[in-house]
Design a protein around this nucleic acid. Structure first.
Lengths: 192, 192
DNA sequence: TGGATTTTGTTGGCTAAGCAACACTGGAGC
DNA sequence: GCTCCAGTGTTGCTTAGCCAACAAAATCCA
């Protein structure tokens, strides 16, 4: 999951092409009609690929959502070169920013963020955050168990980003993170 | 050649896809570096398709140019629904406008219109004009030979469009055609 | 409820696209 | 002259995508 994007370069060009077509069509549709209303047909029609081809890549539309969300989030992460590093306050800060930005963009781009959609996104993103955090924390010399602190931090970060992205009058992101960061960092001090 | 665009709808989606990729890449390159400087490699690299696939569609880059030019020109013709009709002064007028517009766009979009490029375009377009004119003229009841009048008109029309598209201070197209139309039409009166 | 549509996954046979390797041509530079 | 190199077409084999048809849900609505 950490090297998703790098591995894609080596794929058969046809595979890259169809996946991109599917992703484009899907995100276009997300802007129009909300996830629940989208059928696999809709996606393959818009992408101009055969329906059978869709199933060669994804088991269903939920797998597609998962893939699409992960991919966009990963770009947000890689943009800040957070994918290959270890735990520091600065990295943590940037990760919080990344999640906030990601959710903000998502709410901006998607038509009617329904409940089901939101909770699917939450699951996918929390998994990504958890994996990345765990990876960071395992770099530390002291062999401290990481599962509990990583879990707490993951949920806290997602909760913060959710709050931020839903707030009517969205405050300056830097300011917001300044206030929030210490509350997350306090549980991770031992890994600095 | 008259039904080129309509037949394309029935093609295998993969074929349509690759041809479009090739066309896009090609017209992009034409804007950058001039036809002579473009290699088949360049096209396939930019289109992200395999070089062997290119040769499954076109014998060489000249065939591609021919195809690309014909296609764009045909769009200009179909836009004015000149593809399925017979000879009238009004249709002739519209055809002249179409050729002028086409050449103007071409000179705007392409980097350095070299001699070889220009003459290849000329050959392709004159063939299209001739075929279309012949088709029109054959609709007439009187069975008059069409080859000579169609040839004269074809060359005249292309010459006019070339003059128009190369002129520094390009005059209003309507005015230009008003002046030029009678000189072409005079040889086609018998087909009205 | 119950019948009529959509949608969903899945399949087998066919066709287009990818790939690596080849021999060949035609400059560019020495 | 010569080699070197980049581009050209071509080939046999592999893989991905297309298609039509199917049974099995799910959805609609009368």
């Amino acid at each position: 999951m950490l090297s998703n994007l790098r591995e894609e370069g080596k794929l058969d060009p046809r595979v890259k092409r169809t996946r991109n077509l599917i992703l484009q069509a899907f995100s276009g549709l997300l802007g129009e009609k909300g996830f629940e209303a989208i059928s696999v047909q809709d996606v393959t029609d818009k992408a101009q690929i055969n329906r059978a081809t869709f199933y060669a890549h994804f088991t269903d539309k939920y797998a597609l959502l998962d893939y699409a969300i992960s991919r966009v989030f990963m770009q947000e992460i890689e943009k800040r070169t957070l994918n290959a590093c270890s735990y520091t306050h600065d990295n943590l800060r940037n990760m919080i920013i990344a999640v906030c930005e990601f959710l903000s963009h998502l709410h901006h781009d998607c038509a009617q963020p329904h409940e089901q959609f939101e909770s699917l996104v939450e699951g996918t993103i929390k998994k990504q955050i958890f994996d990345l955090l765990s990876h960071w924390l395992k770099q530390t010399k002291a062999k401290i168990p990481t599962e509990i602190p990583a879990t707490v931090a993951t949920w806290a970060i997602y909760g913060l980003a959710s709050l931020y992205s839903h707030s009517k009058k969205r405050p300056a992101l830097d300011k917001f993170v300044d206030d929030a960061l210490p509350l997350v960092a306090v549980n991770l001090e031992q890994f600095v």
